[in-house]
Design a protein around this nucleic acid. Structure first.
Lengths: 125, 125
DNA sequence: GGAGAAGTTTACGTTAACGTAAACTAGCGG
DNA sequence: CCGCTAGTTTACGTTAACGTAAACTTCTCC
């Protein structure tokens, strides 16, 4: 028996899985970040939508704005002409530079947390 | 001749150094994140204020709220009683956990950027 | 002593990212 | 048939983090 692969989700499914409200998911659609289909009135989300949502939330954890996440999502789509692709490459490098900076920031902050912890423990002795 | 070490800054100094507006710096003071002294009317910032500002801005790059940065700043101050210190240790661990998550997010995102770049380059060939 | 330049206070304005509430519809089990 | 659950639209509200503008003082430089 081969496991069935789920290929579509309701708004509630996604809300539960990623621990966000349905309002949030609809908001992202308003902003053009998600494009669910409709079965009647009801939204039906594809694997692509689910991936996009994952991207958005990961972006949020790193302090990205929705505008920035929008670009990240675009990087997943190969539907672009030459000029757009080259612009995309630019954005990719920008993002990468930002990530490198964030890595540095995290390293420094980790060291500082270590020191802060030491000071705390010293005081408690 | 030994180099003089600067120990105080004007609001303009800090604004220039960290590329923020003076409005922003005063706002942080309103929020209790900075505590400059006064020479008459004029604010005079100490090394501690400068460090705090650095913390805030690094926090911002990682998506921290000012409330979170406020806690980070507190971690630099050893002026606390036992209960506060233990609470502080808790916050330190929370922050560390968040940083670890961010590190994971960054790694994944870097890989995805690599892939996105490959796809871009493929399309351009 | 007049004109900048840099500082100050006060206060209203703005944007992003949703929250919250109301009022409605559609399917489903008992 | 009825009530429940999950979904929908519309619209106003809210919070964080400053921006922006006005009106004022203080210092310095020529």
């Amino acid at each position: 028996m081969t496991a069935k692969k789920i290929t579509s989700w309701s708004i509630g499914d996604l809300a539960r899985e990623f621990d966000v409200t349905t309002r949030t998911i609809r908001f992202y659609e308003d902003e053009g970040l998600l494009q669910p289909e409709r079965r009647g009135q009801t939204r039906v989300y594809s694997a692509a939508d689910r991936t996009a949502l994952k991207l958005i939330l990961r972006g949020k954890r790193l302090g990205f704005s929705l505008a920035e996440s929008r670009q990240l999502i675009q990087m997943y789509n190969p539907d672009a002409n030459r000029a757009q692709l080259e612009a995309l490459l630019g954005k990719i490098h920008e993002r990468r530079a930002q990530l490198v900076q964030q890595l540095r920031d995290i390293e420094v902050m980790q060291l500082e947390l270590d020191e802060a912890e030491q000071r705390c423990l010293e005081c408690l002795k």
